[in-house]
């Protein structure tokens, strides 16, 4: 099983910027790629720190990165809503402009939080898997140089 102490640094280094970036509306132009990239970064940093990277390490480091990003995004969103500054992803001003939002409520935000607490770690984990797949062969070739 993965050593969680070794995960702290890569997860925080990649998860905090991922959370901060998630409040930028333009970032959604990249579809889900930004979250996957930070999951990949987390796996890369884990490999750099420990020298090994198994698939489960990639999955867990990526998923935890997504979870940290979700927490940061929620905190920033609540701050933005409370102080009524900037554009919060939870306020969905871009959605309101498109005329597909019928209104906001606490229940709505709660539902969104419940869904995104699963979605963010899933996409982070996908980035971690990609990282583990792409970096694992490199590790083997380093061990057996030709």
């Amino acid at each position: 099983m993965v050593d969680f102490n070794k995960l702290q640094k890569p997860v925080l280094i990649s998860g905090i910027p991922a959370g901060l970036i998630s409040v930028i509306p333009f970032i959604h132009c990249l579809c889900c790629v930004w979250l996957i990239l930070f999951g990949f970064l987390s796996a890369y940093l884990f490999k750099k720190d420990t020298g090994t990277l198994e698939i489960e390490d990639g999955v867990i480091s990526g998923a935890l990165t997504g979870l940290v990003a979700f927490v940061i995004m929620m905190i920033l969103s609540i701050i933005f809503i409370f102080f009524k500054v900037g554009i919060s992803p939870l306020m969905g001003e871009d959605m309101a402009m498109q005329g597909i939002m019928s209104g906001f409520s606490l229940l709505f935000i709660l539902f969104t939080g419940l869904i995104q607490i699963i979605v963010f770690p899933i996409f982070g984990a996908i980035g971690g898997i990609i990282g583990a797949v792409l970096l694992k062969d490199k590790e083997l070739s380093e061990q057996n140089p030709r």
Binding site: S22, H28, C29, C31, C32, L35, P89, G92, D94, M95, Q98, I100, M101, S102, G103, F108, F111, T112, I115, Q116, V119, F120, F123
Partner: peptide, 18 residues
């Protein structure tokens, strides 16, 4: 059903420009 639809649309806006 519009409310359910809104929740789905809103949650996917985190992942796509739509």
């Amino acid at each position: 059903y519009q409310s359910i639809s809104d929740i789905i649309y809103f949650n996917f806006h985190f992942l796509c420009h739509q």
